[in-house]
Amino acid sequence: MREIVLDTETTGFDPKSGDRIVEIGAVELMGHVATGKTFHEYINPERGMPDEAFQVHGLGDDFLRDKPKFAAVGQAFLDFVGDSKMVIHNAAFDMKFLNFELGKMGLRQLPWEQAIDTLAIARKKFPGSPSSLDALCRRFGIDNGARTLHGALLDSEILAEVYLELIGGKQPDFGLSTRAEPKEGETHTEWTPRPRPVPLPSRLSEKETAAHAEFVGKLGGGAVWLKT
């Protein structure tokens, strides 16, 4: 399953009032694992960068002046996303800006059904608790120390970690999934665990072992711990 975790940075809050995208960052996940493939572009917003936006993003007019306009990167962005689900924090905001720019180009709109909104997931999972990206990083113990300014690619990488925690954490299948047997002449190349030559010592103390034995003794002869 392919998913795209993405973030945009903008000059403000409303594209209809003249605000524009100044950065897009996206990372690819396959089976909830980052593949290393990314999409990242700084974009010339064709307008001045407001002071408050500069303070948030650290992107000034001089830096953005020679960057491509959205029309030059819009198709490449659509090609990267394809029909994969898009994981976005506060998806309504980013989708509003992206579809505004894509509409200006006459390109297809991104349907809402293609988005997975991690903000909505967090609010449902932790009602009444702060749900910002920084707050979720603190909750899950994710290091976001490099996030001194908002940056689309860095935020996408952090959001990917947050997303995996929100859906239960990235867990290995411990070899329990069904795998096809090798055909004649073929051999398995996958790693399989081997028994330990020396069993690990018990981590229970004598006091804990005695307390457990006393507890089991009170359960009678039907206790599962007494069955072999």
Rank of each mutant, 00 (worst) to 15 (best):
E161Y: 07
K96Y: 09
G128Q: 04
L98N: 00
E181Q: 11
S84H: 14
T209A: 15
D79C: 06
A76D: 10
L154W: 08
E190T: 13
G168Q: 09
Y163T: 06
S131R: 06
I116C: 07
F97I: 05
R147T: 09
I158P: 06
S202G: 04
Y163I: 05
R147V: 13
K183T: 04
A180K: 13
M105H: 08
G185L: 00
E190Q: 14
G103Y: 14
S132V: 01
G175A: 01
D155K: 00
K124E: 14
T209Y: 12
Q114V: 00
Q109R: 15
D134G: 12
G169N: 10
F93K: 02
I88N: 01
L98H: 11
P172V: 01
A211W: 13
A180C: 08
A211E: 14
P127W: 11
D173N: 05
F100C: 02
L149A: 03
R123L: 10
L110G: 01
K96C: 15
G141L: 08
L200V: 09
M105A: 09
K183C: 07
K125W: 01
P195W: 12
K96S: 09
E157V: 15
D155C: 01
F174H: 08
T118W: 10
S202V: 03
A120K: 01
Q171Y: 04
T192C: 06
P199C: 02
A152W: 04
Q171T: 09
K104L: 15
Q171I: 12
G168C: 09
L176F: 14
L98Y: 07
G151T: 12
E206V: 12
R108D: 04
I142S: 04
I158S: 03
L136R: 08
S205M: 09
S202N: 05
S129N: 10
G175M: 02
S202K: 04
V81L: 05
P197V: 09
L176T: 08
K170P: 07
S131I: 04
R138T: 10
D117R: 00
T209I: 15
F126K: 02
S129I: 05
R179H: 02
A120E: 03
R196T: 07
S84F: 07
E181C: 04
L200I: 09
E181F: 08
F140G: 06
Q114E: 02
R139Y: 11
E165G: 03
G106K: 10
E184Q: 01
R179N: 04
E113M: 12
T209K: 15
Q109V: 07
L119R: 00
R147D: 11
P111G: 01
K207F: 13
Y163D: 08
A211F: 12
H150G: 07
W112I: 02
